[in-house]
Lab assay of single mutants.
Amino acid sequence: RERTTFTRAQLDVLEALFAKTRYPDIFMREEVALKINLPESRVQVWFKNRRAKCRQ
């Protein structure tokens, strides 16, 4: 699998959701994945990595 490159628009949507909740449930992830045209698994990993970035 190639490394996913997120567009600015995708990142804006993800960051906005992250500001609301750091742990979105499966339904929220599915919804945002459809909206920004990414698989739900990529959204899940993005959140995992974003939380890790926050902890540093």
Rank of each mutant, 00 (worst) to 15 (best):
E30K: 09
Q56W: 06
R42M: 14
K53P: 06
S41D: 13
E31V: 05
N49M: 11
E30S: 10
E2M: 04
V45A: 14
P24K: 01
R1A: 15
I36N: 05
A9K: 14
D25R: 04
K20Q: 15
E31I: 04
P24A: 00
L14I: 01
E31Y: 06
S41M: 05
A9D: 08
F47Q: 00
Q44Y: 07
I36G: 06
T5C: 12
V45P: 02
V45Q: 14
W46F: 03
A9I: 04
P39S: 11
A16R: 09
L17P: 00
R22D: 12
L34Q: 15
R1H: 15
K53A: 10
R29M: 14
F6V: 11
M28Q: 14
K48C: 06
F47Y: 02
E2A: 06
V32R: 02
R42V: 14
R8N: 15
T5A: 12
A9E: 12
Y23W: 11
A9W: 09
N37S: 08
V32H: 02
T4K: 10
D12F: 03
R1E: 08
R3F: 13
R22P: 14
R8W: 04
T4Y: 14
Y23R: 08
R55A: 12
V13Y: 04
N49F: 05
S41Q: 14
Y23F: 14
F47W: 04
L14D: 00
R50T: 07
W46N: 01
Q10N: 03
A19W: 06
A52F: 05
A52I: 08
F47E: 00
V43L: 05
W46G: 00
P24D: 03
L14Y: 00
K53H: 12
V32Y: 00
R55N: 10
Q44K: 09
T21R: 05
T21E: 10
V43D: 01
R50V: 02
L11M: 07
E15C: 02
F18S: 02
F47P: 00
E15R: 02
P24M: 01
A16H: 15
N37V: 03
Q10G: 01
D25I: 00
L38Y: 04
L38P: 02
L34P: 04
T5W: 09
A19T: 09
F27A: 15
E15N: 06
K48N: 10
K35D: 05
F6Q: 03
Y23T: 10
D25K: 03
V45N: 15
N37W: 01
E30I: 04
W46I: 00
E30G: 06
A52R: 10
Q56G: 13
N49P: 10
